[in-house]
Amino acid sequence: MNFLNQNWWKWLSIGVLFYVLIAGLIGPVPRLAILNETIRVLYFHVPMWFGMIIILTASMVYAIKFLSADDPKLDHLSVELANVGVLFGVLGILTGMLWANYTWGAPWSNDPQQNAAAIGLLIYFAYFILRGSLQDEQQRARISAIYNIFAYAALIPLLFILPRLTDSLHPGSGGNPGFNAYDLDSNLRFVFYPAVVGWTLLGCWITSIRYRMRRIKETLEE
């Protein structure tokens, strides 16, 4: 928790994201057929999924911590992390659809990874509906934490195993070349990995603000 109150990582996030924006939009990228300049979406699309997985994992970890410690603060953190994770997921789907529109010819091409991502979001929407339908605070926290863990376990095979068993338009599965094949000179990596870090830190920042808002609201109501 101490970490959340410090400021250095917020500056780091701003700095890294500025670097990603500038280097991502004007830096050198491999010249590839079909992809052309759209390859720059890589810096904004793929980090959304990395960020989503990291943040949803954190949400699940806080759900487990809540079940063992029974502290409402942990539940608030867990739900705010899930909120931000879903935001990242929605942005990931939207940027992906934009990219797919230019490279695969349609925003939705029945790609297994796209479908899995959409189902994954459905899981978390169900989580929010479950929270909304429970009145008692204690019970809401406990039951939604249980569903959070359960849903996460269903999400992992969905995102990591199933798409690899079928042919996909995404690189890295079904005989399509992976990331490495596009990245002959490793230029993409210099922007891509910072982008993952930057977006994830931004997600943590949003979470910490929303978490504090929730705490304040809670205190005001008491």
Binding site: I119, A126, L130, S133, F150, A151, A154, L162
Partner: peptide, 18 residues
């Protein structure tokens, strides 16, 4: 959560889908 049939459906579909 109050024996809600709709809730049962929306909670279980995504979990069963994979």
């Amino acid at each position: 959560a109050g024996n809600n049939a709709v809730l049962m459906a929306i909670l279980s579909f995504p979990v069963v889908l994979p």
